[in-house]
Design a protein around this nucleic acid. Structure first.
Lengths: 204, 204, 204, 204
DNA sequence: CTATAAGCGAGACGGTACGTCGCGTCTTGTA
DNA sequence: TACAAGACGCGACGTACCGTCTCGCTTATAG
């Protein structure tokens, strides 16, 4: 009974889809998401505006889609292989891989997606679902192992531990100036670890 | 020799200024900064658009100005009076005052100003200058005293300590869902304090 | 290679076009072309400004278009049927038809289009092409026949003869006050005819 | 009891006045009256807008004032000295003096003042009073003498005769393209004279 | 010989309209 | 039915001038 019929994904043209995603991500990196427009994406992809609107609800969604896809390609190389016995070392590896190697040169895209999602709850949800949640789950698992090992205090909520680390990175990305490089990631993890380690004297 | 002359602040009409700031902040709270327009601000303030553009470069700047001014009025009530001997207690008081009592009900304005500042470096600079820096300076001073007291490890950079706390608050505001209330502030400070206290073993 | 593509006339919406033309002419008659605005036309036609700008370069062009179209509808009724044997009588009929019956109540629109065309060469060209030239051609033909008949001196340029007549009408319209009615048209033609008739004595 | 007092002409600053008139005329000649603005005049004259509005009601009035003043300076050289016995020759001299020598290079200013006066009745009145009427009176006098001489038919209204001539010049200025030079002035007068001369047969 | 009322420069102000951009919906024609 | 193309109604952009106003400064009589 709906007036506007839902599009049929089976008939979706993959070349068109790829062209749109590439145009969107390219423009976001070149001029910033804020200055990207759907008209611009469509023109650059050689596509009608209608076609963009058919498959995505907003420019943020297109760019998130394109960007997340690129991240996923970069991602599955390492992460779960980073499994030495030393939790702090592993943590540094995991965070560096995610923040430096994977996100790396597209940090401004990340920043503008977070910005955009402040007034677009759907985008915010998509963002968390596609980026925050998977990354978090992976690290949470490792933290739980570290708690079993006794390398992390048992009374700490793994998700709060993750917040403690990522919050610092996002804070530098979004709020204050300052380096956000490999050395900083190490510092971030070290500062966090001070609070995560079991209190030694407690057992004495 | 300049084509566009700078306006003379001495001739600025204070009633007009106040009307614009009030309109801007009101609209930002009601419909969100993203949907605020300069046209709308001007209309609501009963003012020509030109008058807004004469004194502010962007809608973000107007809203930041209005909001910061409101915060400053709320602010000078407590902050520096929060001086018991217990650093952790003081810290909780200071952060609660800033985050709950002062910012409190205008958190969405804060979020959208940070969002806007992702593609507006001037706004970002203004934001840091008017909000981040003063709040930071105050807390940094207290941390230094706590280091002298031995309540905070001497090898910690006070600014990193502040980041450790505020980053958590901003992370919940901007990136992940979750309560951001008084109880959370306490938790944030407690988690941070775990890492800030001097390592007991060092003296042994 | 062109930045701004030309719009495709085939996709022009005829209802929209008609609404714009009607609005434009209506406003020009009611408040005068000088106080007509494109914004106003668009609003009255229930149309976006963009749509007006897409098809016409200026408000003068819209009004000229609307007005000329109306004149053309009024026109094809008579003009060429005015063919008695008496040239002066025919001339009076033709000019009255054009100036009184056709232009008649829209004289102020004519005046303001001429005014506007003083600083808009494109409009001036359009105006001549759509109004002056066709009217002139028709009368010129009749004058040539009168010259063959011996009712008009053979050594006179038909276009100068037409100027002699129309110039008087436009002069009253644009420059000096005074009636510009049916009686005046007769007077204008009579005064012109004094100079157009063959010099009688020449043959004696 | 009037709220806004009339300005006192005795206290008017002649330097200011001159600067405004010069700026206005200069701009009208350079960019056309249509693109002249009161703001522009004031800026170029180094004068406050208020001062312009104090003494003139519109930009058209300023430019007319400046232009008429210049014409008056140029004018009193000849006109009434053009008094040979031959009316046609005198007429040519008078019209050439007015149209070629006096108005000459400022014809576009004349055109735009006539244009402007289509929607500004005050300007229209000023224009006729300062330019049309004096020029007309002078020629009318000479025509009356020619009627007494028998060089012009007695049954012709001198003002209609003047219209017959000037209308042709204004028509070329305002409505159609074509030369408007010395040769054309001669042609205009000659064509008009065909109709103005007494009908020879009348005496038979 | 002051003082008080212009004229004047400067330009802020509330407005209206400009001409442009991008939105999201729509229609048309092609494959 | 997906798609390229783009017209359309709409709302906002940032700018230009409008004509009025308020501010100090200067200038020129009138007390």
């Amino acid at each position: 009974m709906s007036t506007t019929r839902a599009p049929d994904p089976a008939r979706r043209n993959p070349h068109t889809t790829a062209a749109i995603l590439e145009a969107a991500l390219g423009m976001a990196r070149e001029i910033g998401l804020a200055r990207v427009t759907i008209e611009g994406i469509a023109a650059r992809a050689g596509v009608g505006k209608r076609t963009v609107y058919r498959w995505w609800p907003s420019k943020g969604a297109v760019v998130l889609d394109a960007w997340a896809q690129q991240l996923e390609e970069r991602l599955h190389r390492r992460l779960d292989t980073a499994q030495t016995g030393d939790f702090e070392a592993d943590l540094k590896l995991m965070v560096k891989d995610a923040w430096i190697d994977t996100i790396g040169d597209t940090r401004s895209v990340l920043a503008s997606i977070v910005a955009e999602s402040q007034h677009d709850p759907d985008l915010a949800a998509q963002f968390r679902q596609r980026l925050i949640d998977p990354a978090t789950a992976l690290v949470a698992e490792r933290i739980r192992r570290a708690q079993a090992d006794g390398q992390v205090a048992a009374d700490i909520d793994p998700y709060r531990a993750i917040e403690l680390i990522y919050a610092q990175l996002y804070y530098r990305l979004l709020v204050v100036r300052g380096p956000n490089d490999e050395a900083y990631v190490e510092d971030v993890v070290e500062l966090a670890m001070r609070g995560l380690r079991p209190t030694r004297r407690s057992g004495a």
